[in-house]
Amino acid sequence: MMRDGAGVMVRLASVADAVALQSCFRDLSISSRYNRLMGAASELPAEQSQKIIHSGRGVTSVLAVTQVDGCEQIVGEARYAFDQDGWRVELGLSIDDRPQRWELGAALLSNLEGRAAALGAAQLFGDTLRSNYAMLAVARKAGFALAATPGDWKQVRFEKRIDAMPQALPGASLRMAGRGEVAMAH
């Protein structure tokens, strides 16, 4: 829930989200856009937009959305890619500048952790710029360890081993229920 009492829902991204996603990205501060893409950009590059709205081949994107004046508004996005060979999930996320301090980043990380557990991953990780203090703080608070990113002195890798039972993590139960592994509450 956001500070103004509005609820936030996390859902899969779709092709229908392309315009709203671009609008959300344009509304980010210059530093937030730079942190998300690890480079300068005034708008979300078409290639990145296509990757976000078209899931598949082990890569999925989720959006954090809320209602503003009766219309859905994107306030965060996250992408994750499952590497079956290494049983790891790589992630990236961005949060609208206004709710950055409202625990939305932590909630998205928790959601991704549940999704990673449901996939059977043993580790969740991402890379961010050393200057992205907000992301580093969120990752640290969520229990991620910080280390140098191999081969890139400008980045920091945050990683977390997934030891919890998938049923205990948000987002994990839906995937498991879809495979018939757990019963859904009615």
Rank of each mutant, 00 (worst) to 15 (best):
Ala41Trp: 05
Glu103Tyr: 12
Cys24Ile: 08
Gly126His: 04
Phe158His: 13
Ile74Thr: 06
Gln155Phe: 05
Gly56Cys: 03
Tyr133Thr: 15
Pro166Arg: 12
Ser49Val: 10
Asp163Asn: 11
Arg88Leu: 03
Asp4Ile: 08
Met135Tyr: 02
Arg161Gln: 13
Trp102Ile: 00
Arg3Asp: 13
Ala64Glu: 04
Met165His: 11
Ala6Met: 02
Lys154His: 14
Pro166Thr: 08
Ala137Gln: 08
Arg130Pro: 07
Thr66Val: 02
Gln73Ile: 05
Met1His: 08
Glu113Gln: 15
Leu28Trp: 12
Ser173Cys: 12
Gln50Asn: 14
Thr149Phe: 03
Asn132Tyr: 09
Gly56Thr: 03
Asp96Ala: 15
Leu169Ser: 10
Val156Cys: 13
Ala122Met: 11
Val10Asn: 06
Asp97Arg: 02
Gln22Glu: 12
Ile74Ala: 01
Arg33Pro: 12
Leu112Asp: 01
Asp127Tyr: 11
Glu103Pro: 01
Asp83Phe: 01
Asn111Lys: 14
Asp17Met: 00
Glu113Ser: 13
Trp87Asn: 08
Gln155His: 14
Gly143Asp: 08
Leu93Tyr: 11
Ala137Ile: 02
Ala134Tyr: 10
Thr66Ile: 07
Val59Gly: 03
Arg98Thr: 13
Gly70Cys: 10
Gly151Asn: 14
Trp87Ser: 10
His186Arg: 14
Ser61Thr: 15
Arg11Ile: 00
Ala177Val: 05
Gln100Pro: 03
Gly58Asp: 00
Gly180Tyr: 01
Thr60Ala: 02
Val68Lys: 13
Gln67Val: 12
Ala177Asp: 00
Gly178Thr: 07
Asp152Ala: 09
Gly105Ala: 09
Ala142Cys: 15
Leu136Asn: 05
Ser55Gly: 13
Leu119Gln: 14
Asn111Cys: 11
Leu169Thr: 10
Pro45Ile: 09
Leu169Pro: 15
Ala18Glu: 13
Ala106Ser: 15
Leu104Asn: 04
Gln100Asp: 05
Met176Gly: 00
Gly178Val: 01
Ile30Pro: 03
Ala145Ile: 05
Ala134Gln: 13
Arg36Thr: 07
Arg130Ala: 15
Arg26Cys: 11
Gly151Trp: 08
Glu90Lys: 04
Arg26Ala: 10
Leu169Gly: 12
Ala78Arg: 02
Thr66Trp: 04
Ala20Met: 07
Leu124Cys: 07
Asp152Glu: 12
Glu103Met: 13
Ala147Phe: 03
Ala142Pro: 03
Ser110Val: 02
Lys160Tyr: 00
Gly171Lys: 00
Pro170Phe: 12
Tyr133Asn: 11
Lys160Arg: 15
Trp102Leu: 09
Thr60Glu: 07
Leu44Cys: 07
Ser131Glu: 13
Ala40Trp: 00
Phe82Glu: 03
Thr66Cys: 12
Val182Trp: 01
Val10Trp: 02
Asp17Val: 01
Gln50Trp: 10
Ala16Ser: 09
Leu12Lys: 11
Ser42Arg: 15
Ala164Asp: 08
Glu43Pro: 01
Ala13Ser: 14
Phe158Asn: 00
Gln84Asn: 03
Pro45Trp: 08
Pro99Ser: 06
Arg140Leu: 09
Tyr80Ile: 00
Leu37Ile: 03
Leu44Ile: 14
Leu63Pro: 01
Ser23Met: 09
Leu12His: 07
Trp102Phe: 06
Gln84Glu: 11
Met184Gly: 04
Leu109Cys: 12
Thr149Lys: 05
